[in-house]
Amino acid sequence: MFHGVRTVMIFADDPEASARWWGGLLDAPVRLDVADTGAVYAWIETAGVELGFHPADDARNPRGGSPVVYWGVDDLDRARARLLAAGCEHHRGPLEIAPGRRIAQLRDPFGTVVGIEGP
């Protein structure tokens, strides 16, 4: 019935800037659509997952209403260091949640909390 994650929607004050930051970090091209209202919708695809960047709207898509998505990584410490160097801020962790399995959360420059999970 369920398959792997296909799309993660991120609600941002500046969807294009957020998509360009993530696209640069993940070496993924950014695609844009501009609505008649001038609102920008942006997305990238990486590792078989589409990251969509949608304008934040407190009435329909309140901040903090999105789940934290965890990226699987080969080396948690190295991935965390790369994210911090790219402009993320520490949010929580690293935490060992099971033997050989750790997680950490960081906040990107646009306020989105993202998780990483790995050894």
Rank of each mutant, 00 (worst) to 15 (best):
P67R: 06
V30H: 03
E50D: 02
V73I: 12
E16W: 10
V73P: 09
A39C: 00
G23T: 11
V49C: 02
D14T: 11
E50W: 01
P15A: 04
D27T: 15
W22D: 09
Y70D: 08
L25R: 13
P15M: 06
P55G: 06
T46H: 06
D74Q: 14
H54R: 08
T46Y: 00
D14A: 15
L32Q: 09
G52H: 10
P62F: 07
G48Y: 02
V73Y: 11
P15C: 04
A35F: 02
G23R: 06
V69S: 13
R60M: 14
G64R: 10
R63P: 10
A19F: 11
E16Q: 15
W43K: 00
V68L: 09
L25T: 12
L25A: 13
V69R: 00
P62D: 03
L76F: 09
V30G: 03
G38L: 01
G48R: 00
N61M: 08
G48A: 03
D33Q: 09
P62V: 07
V68I: 15
A35H: 06
D75S: 09
A47F: 08
A59W: 04
G23C: 11
R63V: 11
G48K: 02
L26H: 13
W21P: 05
V68F: 03
P15E: 05
A47I: 01
A39H: 05
T46L: 04
V30S: 03
R63C: 01
R63T: 13
A56V: 14
R60T: 14
A39L: 12
P29H: 05
R20A: 12
D58A: 15
P29N: 07
W21H: 15
W21G: 11
W71P: 02
E50R: 12
V68D: 07
R31E: 13
Y41S: 10
D14I: 04
D33I: 00
Y41G: 02
V40E: 10
V30L: 01
P29A: 11
D74R: 14
V49S: 02
T37W: 05
F53G: 06
F53L: 05
G23W: 09
P67K: 04
T37M: 04
G52V: 01
V49A: 01
L51P: 00
W22F: 14
V34M: 01
G38Q: 03
A39Q: 14
G38K: 01
R60W: 12
D27Q: 15
L25F: 15
P29G: 08
Y41K: 05
H54Y: 15
N61D: 04
W22T: 05
V68Y: 07
T46S: 07
L51F: 14
L32T: 15
T46Q: 04
P15K: 05
S66M: 11
D75G: 10
G65H: 07
A59K: 09
A17T: 08
T37E: 12
A35L: 10
D36A: 13
A47T: 02
A59S: 11
S18V: 06
W71N: 09
G72S: 13
G64L: 09
L25I: 13
L51T: 00
E16R: 15
W22E: 06
D74I: 07
A42F: 02
T46F: 00
L32H: 01
G72E: 14
L51H: 04
A56R: 15
